[in-house]
Computed example of a mutant assay.
Amino acid sequence: MEKLSVVLLNFNGQHHLKNFLPSVTQYSKPYQVVVVDNGSTDDSVAFIESSYPDVQLIKFKENHGFSGGYNKALGLLDSEYVVLLNTDVEVTPNWINPVLEQLESSEDIKAAQPKILDQKAKEYFEYAGASGGYIDDLGYPLCRGRIFQTIEKDNGQYDEAGEVFWASGSCLFVDRKTYLDLGGLDVDFFAHMEEIDLCWRIWRSHYRIMVVPKSTVYHVGGGTLDKSKPKKTYLNFRNGLSLLIKNEDGLKLIWKLPLRIFLDWVALIKFSIESGPQHGLAILKAHIHTLIHFSKTFKKREALKNHPKIPRLKGWIIISYFVSGRKKYSQLRKET
């Protein structure tokens, strides 16, 4: 059995492979690098076969999406640990060992991430992960280094390793057996927040998740779907509601879900004014989808107990951010 495999899911991303696969192959030794091609129609497969013959290539005939592609691929591997690594990530020397050592330090640690900085502005944290993720009492995600659209400069303020609620899917180290036992990533999420859903299930299985800032990678971000696109707005709002419906405590869900829907309508007005009516329409479509598929999503709730020390943020981030003006993670309090 391999100790660890670095797994990149590719769909028509030859340009990213050309830019970032060199650092991955150079700095991932002696561990296995695997490229999973998700039915690409560009020259990705030919490029890998000719330029990187030592990289293991798994070829799917069709695009199974981010979640489905990884679920199928990880079932074919035999590694103890895997790294789900986006193709637009630049890794650095010794990026694997600090995280792997953290995973192996305790049997109840099942997932982790490095510090993730912006590949286009390397002194800043990257939006989708930064130095580890959390959610607040209403299920809104945030990171050490990023709250909503406020992204902090990395001055070493979040360099301590520790527990986090979720680890970024752009560079997710995870115990492969745990991943498969929990059903992997939810294919109905398609993209965005699917890793938060998985991490919530990991915590509710009484395991832990860590961030290890001693390891650093650089993520381009937005390579799959630009944040200016209404589809991204749709997925974020739709999946945010699905996240709560699937995982929140039953009694709390009774009041939290209606409140989240109300706040989404406030956001609909704000998005329509600031980003255009197409984004407001995307939020409306997200709500319609949630209503139509509520029963299906609710049936996915698992009989798992909440971890007694799940690292969730106290309070409502929308109040802290928009009313109190606390726009940095260091200004917030963590529930223990």
Rank of each mutant, 00 (worst) to 15 (best):
V6R: 01
L9W: 08
L9T: 04
N10T: 02
F11G: 02
H15D: 14
L17T: 06
N19A: 15
L21V: 02
P22A: 04
S23G: 03
S23D: 13
Y27N: 10
P30G: 09
Y31Q: 01
V36Q: 13
G39V: 03
G39I: 05
D42N: 03
S44D: 12
Q56T: 06
N63D: 15
F66V: 10
G75Y: 02
S79F: 06
L84T: 01
N86W: 01
T92Q: 07
T92I: 03
W95R: 01
I96M: 04
E104H: 08
S105F: 06
E107L: 10
K110D: 06
Y124K: 12
E126K: 12
G129Q: 11
A130R: 04
G139R: 11
R144P: 10
R146S: 14
I147V: 12
I151R: 06
Q157W: 05
A161E: 13
E163G: 01
L172P: 10
V174L: 07
Y179K: 11
L182Y: 03
G183P: 11
G183Y: 04
L185K: 00
E194K: 03
I196H: 03
D197G: 07
L198K: 01
W203D: 07
W203C: 09
Y207E: 09
R208W: 03
I209V: 14
I209W: 09
T216H: 00
Y218R: 07
H219S: 08
V220A: 06
T224N: 13
K227S: 15
K231G: 00
Y234L: 11
Y234I: 00
F237N: 14
R238Q: 14
L241K: 09
L241F: 02
K246V: 10
I254T: 07
L257G: 00
P258S: 07
R260C: 12
L263C: 11
D264L: 14
L268C: 15
K270W: 08
S272Y: 03
I283C: 03
A286F: 02
I288M: 15
T290S: 15
K299N: 10
K300Y: 05
A303E: 14
K309S: 11
P311D: 05
L313G: 00
R333H: 06
